[in-house]
Design a binder for these strands. Structure first.
Lengths: 329, 329
DNA sequence: TTGTAGGCGTTATCAC
DNA sequence: GTGATAACGCCTACAA
């Protein structure tokens, strides 16, 4: 790799002058500029970001920490973040935390060691000292405290929405899947759903789940139907769980949506391709990623922020696992 | 952030000594070591990787370039790469290329500017000069040339396998979806499938697709059935396409697998949760990611390599979109 | 308008 | 065993 010095020598100027032209800072004569630019081109020079980062004590790097990119909800978030960051020439150092506090700390630690200028984190431990002591801006994504900058969907409202829509369409004995207790948004949804069901004076039962993994989803689906065979409506903890429930329901011969309605959460891309297609509460994952990135960029640039907690709207996506509602409601 | 200098002052030694203890290199007296270690702890010091990287002209950073993390096949690959890299304390700078050669070059460029020590790339342009001129090791992933280190699944064999299994189960009028022409593995699968179908003396038709996107998948599925309504077997270009085909087939009342069999490609996590569950040709994405990472690490450490092209096995996963085969074959 | 020189935080080469 | 000190490649006072 050519260095600024090589360019300086070839152009017959000093490194300071080269620096000036590549950074477009300070005065430099048009002729010298041209000479330098030619040397740059000829040597195919591009500045060493590491040296820059060392000198300026800040890089063009952002840390992105997600629980598990293999969970279908997160790739969209990640993509949103990446697209926005890339527009501003920021690059992402990426890590999976597996919701493990120690792993998370290790990542944050190495982020810092690499001079990242900001962090986006989807964590269950936003109040960990590692974040509180951070001297660079952090935006919490999806799983989020209100005292720090964050982007999240309204889980509670999502829960209410799910319950409202499923009740409105006639379900009476509803199973609510309670997602992992340590995941706030999952609990928000759960609470919202329960709140609405109670308000409607209906009975419900709870199926407790402890992760969002694929394999276990199938087990919980089985458990649901074996323990609560009279269920005529399921509010799943997310689309994966919902897909598993749908799968199991069809397997044991339930008619969906005639006898059993199902509502998921997230609206992952595959939901619309299921048969029947999955009705769900959509969270705009991609947009959330973009928003988080945009917010972080503002924070980094110390631009004015209109709101540091950005709540994104949830939305009921009506598809095939819920019945049509009468025109008269 | 505390620097090595702060530690040196606090411990009452020189920076050289501190460097020795944190790198466990050279002689240092037990007592001095203890003093230094205490200072390190007290100041919560951790070395600045940027400074290290500048001096040593190499970092602990790896560049990972994928077409689109939002495409369900890639998160698994990414996860495999990440897990393996993390074991060795390498971090990932991650980018989506959208199969755009220019975007790809930009990323490679910034990878280099950040002193990455290796690159893993899933690209359609492995012969681009940007790779050929790279002075650091590259492992091509999934989409891959044979003259460079690579990890890939045997697409052609996968295609054959899909055709063999669908024929064996009685499909006679097979539709083969030809994936995007610029994506090699997609073409390999296609060719393998066609080869086997021809060999069996059966007729087939081709449905051309130009991307692996969700939205378009539905369109191609429609096209397939409107143009070739007599089809009794579909070899899809991947699981997304297969899911769309399944969705459409059920929508128009085809009985799957009785009247119509479908085989996908990849075995993405959701495939087993479809109804009926999707029969598919599995590529071990996670393991491929791990292998690629392992190979790259060896390359970086200049360890001996037994083979620079690692072909991973494909496998027919029999589920519900294909019929059971008789015991007598 | 341009050049010199010091420093960003580390590591490694020498002396001592 | 330990400590100066010169790099690594870049940027920015400051001087010229």
């Amino acid at each position: 790799m050519a260095t600024i010095k090589d360019v300086a020598v070839l152009a017959g100027v000093s490194v300071a002058t080269v620096s000036r032209v590549i950074n477009e800072r300070g005065y430099v004569h048009a002729d010298t500029r041209k000479k330098v630019e030619e040397a740059v081109k000829q040597l195919n020079f591009s500045p060493n970001e590491v040296a820059r980062s060392l000198y300026k004590r800040k890089s063009k790097l952002i840390g992105l920490l997600l629980p598990d990119i293999a969970n279908p909800y997160f790739p969209q978030l990640a993509r949103g973040v990446e697209d926005r960051m890339q527009e501003q020439d920021f690059r992402l150092i990426f890590g999976n935390s597996d919701e493990d506090e120690e792993k998370e700390q290790d990542y944050i630690q190495t982020f810092i060691q690499n001079n990242v200028v900001g962090v986006i984190s989807s964590t269950n431990y936003p109040h960990s000292p590692i974040y509180e002591n951070l001297k660079i801006p952090v935006v919490f994504l999806d799983r989020t405290p209100l005292d720090s900058p964050s982007v999240y969907a309204d889980g509670r409202e999502g829960g209410r929405l799910a319950a409202r829509e499923i009740i409105r369409r006639g379900s009476q004995r509803i199973a609510v899947m309670q997602g992992p207790v340590h995941i706030r948004p999952a609990q928000d949804r759960f609470e919202g759903a329960v709140e609405m069901i109670r308000q409607a004076g209906l009975d419900y039962h709870v199926v407790q789940t402890t992760s969002f993994s694929f394999n276990e989803a199938a087990l919980w689906a089985e458990e649901l139907f074996s323990k609560h065979s009279e269920t005529d409506g399921v509010i799943a903890s997310n689309d994966i769980a919902a897909t598993a429930v749908l799968h199991e329901a069809l397997r044991i011969g339930r008619k969906v949506p005639e006898e059993l309605q199902i509502i998921g959460f997230d609206d992952i891309p595959l939901s619309s391709l299921l048969s029947p297609a999955l009705s769900t509460i959509r969270q705009p994952a991609y947009e959330m990623g973009r928003e988080a990135a945009g917010l972080l960029i503002k924070l980094i640039e110390q631009a004015p922020i209109d709101q540091k907690n950005i709540q994104m709207p949830v939305e009921f996506i009506e598809r095939g696992t819920t019945r049509k509602v009468n025109a008269n409601g």
